[in-house]
Nucleic acid binder design. Structure first.
Length: 839
RNA sequence: GCGGACGUGGCGGAAUGGUAGACGCCGGGGACUUAAAAUCCCCUGAUCCUUGAUCGUGUGGGUUCGAGUCCCACCGUCCGCACCA
């Protein structure tokens, strides 16, 4: 080997070209090898990759390369989630076309990813803004429509006044738009919906089959779907109207002391007509904030409508209130108030002096026990409840539902928190919804042969609102049914639709249809999906739904798209700041010189406060630029850092010292690789053993995505081999080490591989064999304890019988000293592990 | 409020109920060098009466020959959800 130092600035590019020319990472759908589909969440093309992308894609890359070395045909694709608001914002701010802006960003980011040497099959690359992609998405949307999974309805929607678009419930966080942060308003619009609620139960039950998903994510989805069982029944009001209510505690019906309806409930609307006071109250309810803090302190408010509701059993006339804590869009928008056994009802009843009746108690003797300032929602025995008296809560629920159903005035009901997915967006940069509005035929799907419905190129972004809607010609077309003048739908699809099936398109992308079912079957489901926890609900639930919807339409045979899910932690960094003129100024890591006891500005030397280690963000300036660190340390050092130290599901603190250590290790390996000598002779059992143990352990660690442990083991093997005297075993170990590190540091590994005189690419080499005989040591160190405290250790041949071990341990001078003058009560011997002398 | 995760050296973190702190970073000392960089070697949980011993995995209990690991209670940090009837 000639060079003393490994030079990534030369080697990185050389091997990236070599892999590309050899087509090493191209996935062959027809291969007979076992298939492995490794996927990381594709990025939004913002223009620059973030260090978080580097971590995410490095993990996937190591797995993909490892799978290839262990005999799998690997599909590891990459593409672009290319529709969405930022492109339109750029268009508005800079006057560039969203398409051009997006294309430029993709080119930049692709070059950045390529500099990291990822084993990606770029032949399958696409962007969701390609007409070839969104046209097929339109075809799928129409397929779902044909199968009754798409509908349109007038509905109150979450309107983001800044982005000027509708948001899904999931996109409203604490009453604000998830992207713009603007306070969301309610508006009535005609919207397109996907019937995700049809799949609520399936999506919930399907979670059970996902044994390789984090429990945390499954739990979040479970809560989101929010299944509850209860009873729906109607109250008859004093004005003759009926008001259906839903309750999960129908057993407590005898404790009902009022009925409450939401501000938007028809009853409330009726009462409000011509009554300014009620209108004002309703307005007040609507204005109520929805943030966590506001809800915590929000007072229960009610307006007595003067109407009464007849209790179905007691015949009592219960007052009917409009209440601020009742939601129109859950259940029926009306509830029966049972103050004794629901905390909200309790607070409400206390405020408005309504009766609080106990109907559940610990025992029949406690039937009239007073409440201790709060409702009792727990289990117990029914009391003060006529025919339900003495029953358990569960039995009472069953009984009351049975009676309601027999009497025809109510029925058991399963209720979900999950709502249908509103997919209409009043934006330009998205997939046009393929429908046409005709005055005589109504809403008509665009015929398949007229797809894709392409976005117009000439658009103007100077005025707010939907550019498609105000385009001079685009929306004017003719009705596919009657031929009369008609208008195109000007809404575009939520970008979460785009990301709901991209993984299927990666597996198969014919020109004339969305995908080929057989080819999809060859790859799906994704074997390992890796991405951020922030997509735990939205993206992952939508993708699961979409897959099931396609299966429902008979298009594919897969129900769950992602067999195994991994959510990686964030990359974090210290923050550097100073108080300047009463405000905090943040500094980038490159502007700061860090030392053991603090930090100063490179420019000027002023002291800087070293703040908490937090997620990298532009506003705190605690970011590092992937390009800069690749240029400085090389791709392999950066990749190695991404895998070292922190377990991948936890946050990874970026540090200058850490990346420098990685850079040093790359050189250290390079020096060691240079000592490979094919002509060396002689055995070194200890080295061989360490090699085989490490190969087996690293394989296990990579499969488990425990990259930090694999890294630690590679350090150990490196240390062992470095210290060993030259031998054939040592050279074997060096060669094995080249393969071991090749998924993590592929450029270094290739360079060493060719320098050592091996043929071909190490990326295509087979993972080193493991000789099971070498996995076990023939000597073991046994701990010797007296009363559970370590006193000595013994090095003995493996498999020494219990009695011999015991004798040896008792003979130990240190043991003798510690048991002096005491009686041995018991000796516990665990072969090959320890001896514990109990005195 | 509900649900969940996590608490181990200066730091990131290892550890099938069986030698706590692997491995890395930081720090200290030394070798090489005119010097530096690079590299290599040694030390590096705390305390003490330092050939050794005592203490030590958030706190307090418990189970066990033996607990970071299992059980109970508490404290703290972080995350998710939330007037969902």
């Amino acid at each position: 080997m000639s060079e003393e130092r490994f030079d990534p600035s030369i080697a990185d590019g050389r091997w990236q070209r070599a892999w590309d020319e050899a087509g090493v990472f191209r996935a062959d759908s027809a291969s007979t090898k076992p298939k492995s589909y490794v996927l990381e969440m594709f990025p939004y093309p913002s223009g620059r990759i973030h260090i978080g992308h580097v971590r995410n894609y490095t993990m996937g890359d190591v797995l993909a390369r490892f799978k290839a070395m262990t005999g799998h045909e690997v599909l590891h694709p990459m593409g672009w989630d290319a529709f969405g608001m930022p492109a339109e914002n750029a268009a508005m701010e800079k006057g560039v076309h969203p398409g051009g802006w997006t294309r430029d960003n993709i080119a930049n980011m692709k070059a950045q990813l390529q500099r990291l040497g990822f084993a990606l099959d770029w032949s399958r690359e696409f962007a969701t803004c390609d007409p070839e992609y969104y046209g097929q998405e339109q075809a799928l949307f129409l397929k779902l429509y044909e199968n009754g999974l798409v509908y349109r309805k007038e509905s109150a929607v979450n309107w983001d006044p800044v982005d000027m678009t509708v948001l899904a419930n999931e996109q409203v966080i604490d009453g604000r738009g998830w992207r713009s942060g603007a306070l969301v308003e309610k508006r009535k619009l005609s919207q397109w919906f996907l019937k995700i609620t049809d799949f609520a139960d399936e999506l919930l039950e399907g979670l059970e089959s996902l044994d390789k998903w984090p429990d945390k994510v499954k739990l979040m989805q479970e809560n989101w779907i929010g299944k509850s069982r209860g009873m729906e029944f109607a109250f008859t009001l004093s004005d003759g109207e009926t008001v259906p209510v839903y309750s999960t505690r129908p057993d407590t019906i005898f404790g009902a002391s009022f009925v409450a309806v939401a501000a938007d409930h028809p009853v409330a609307q009726g009462v409000a007509e011509g009554n300014a006071e009620v209108q004002a109250f309703i307005e007040k309810c609507r204005a109520g904030g929805t943030t966590a803090a506001e809800l915590e302190t929000a007072e229960k408010l009610g307006y007595d409508t003067g109407l009464t509701a007849k209790h179905p059993f007691t015949g009592a006339e219960l007052p009917v209130f409009i209440a601020n804590f009742v939601l129109m869009d859950y259940g029926t928008g009306a509830v029966m108030g049972v103050p004794g056994h629901d905390q909200r009802d309790f607070e409400f009843a206390t405020k408005y002096n309504l009766p609080i009746t106990r109907v559940v108690a610990a025992s029949a003797d406690d039937a009239d026990k007073p409440f201790a300032g709060e409702a009792e929602a727990g289990d117990g025995i029914l009391v003060n409840s006529d025919f339900l008296n003495g029953m358990s809560v569960e039995d009472a629920k069953r009984e009351i539902i049975a009676r309601a159903e027999a009497g025809g005035w109510g029925s058991g009901k399963v209720q979900y928190r999950l709502r249908d997915w509103g997919v209409s967006r009043q934006r330009y940069w998205g997939t046009p919804i393929p429908f046409i509005h005709c005055d005589s035929c109504g809403v008509v799907p665009v015929p398949a042969d007229q797809l894709p419905v392409k976005l117009p190129e000439d658009v103007d972004f100077k005025t707010p609102g939907n550019p498609l809607d105000r385009h001079p010609t685009w929306k004017h077309t003719s009705c596919p049914k009657c031929g009369a003048d008609a208008r195109r739908e000007t809404d575009t699809l939520d970008t979460f639709v785009d990301s709901s099936w991209y993984y299927i398109r990666f597996a198969s992308q014919p020109d004339d249809k969305p995908f080929d079912a057989a080819e999809v079957a060859a790859w799906m489901p994704v074997g390992q999906y890796i991405g951020g926890i922030e997509h735990a609900i939205l993206h992952l639930l939508y993708a699961r739904f979409w897959t099931r919807a396609l299966a429902h339409c008979g298009m594919i045979d897969v129900k769950e798209p992602f067999a195994q899910l991994f959510t990686q932690g964030m990359v974090t960094h210290e923050t550097y700041s100073r108080e300047v003129g009463g405000r905090t100024v943040y500094y980038a890591p490159t502007e700061v010189k860090r030392s053991a006891d603090g930090a100063v500005l490179v420019d000027g030397g002023d002291a800087v406060d070293v703040g908490r280690v937090i997620k990298m963000s532009k506003s705190k300036k605690n970011v590092v630029d992937p390009d800069e660190i690749i240029a400085q340390y090389g791709a392999d050092a950066v990749r190695w850092f991404m895998l070292s130290d922190s377990p991948p599901e936890r946050d990874l603190p970026w540090s200058e010292a850490g990346i420098e250590g990685c850079g040093r290790f790359v050189q250290r390996l390079w020096r060691l690789f240079g000592q490979y000598d094919a002509a060396a002779t002689g055995d070194d059992k200890a080295v061989a053993r360490k090699q085989h143990q490490t190969v087996a352990a690293v394989a296990e660690d990579i499969e488990a995505l425990s990259f930090n442990k694999a890294v630690a083991r590679i350090y150990e093997l490196t240390g062992t081999v470095e210290k060993a005297a030259p031998s054939a075993s040592r050279s074997d170990a060096i060669a094995a080490l080249m393969k071991l590190v090749s998924p993590m540091m592929p450029h270094l590994a290739e360079e060493a591989w060719v320098s050592a005189g091996f043929d071909g690419l190490v990326a295509e080499a087979a993972w080193p064999e493991v000789d099971p005989a070498l996995l076990v040591d023939d000597e073991v160190t046994v701990a010797v304890q007296v009363k559970g405290k370590l006193r000595d250790t013994l090095t003995v041949p493996k498999g020494m019988p219990k009695d011999e071990l015991e004798a040896l341990a008792l003979a130990s001078e240190k043991v003798q000293r510690n048991i002096e003058g005491q009686t041995i009560r018991k000796v516990i011997v665990v072969p090959d592990r320890l001896v514990n002398v109990v005195v």
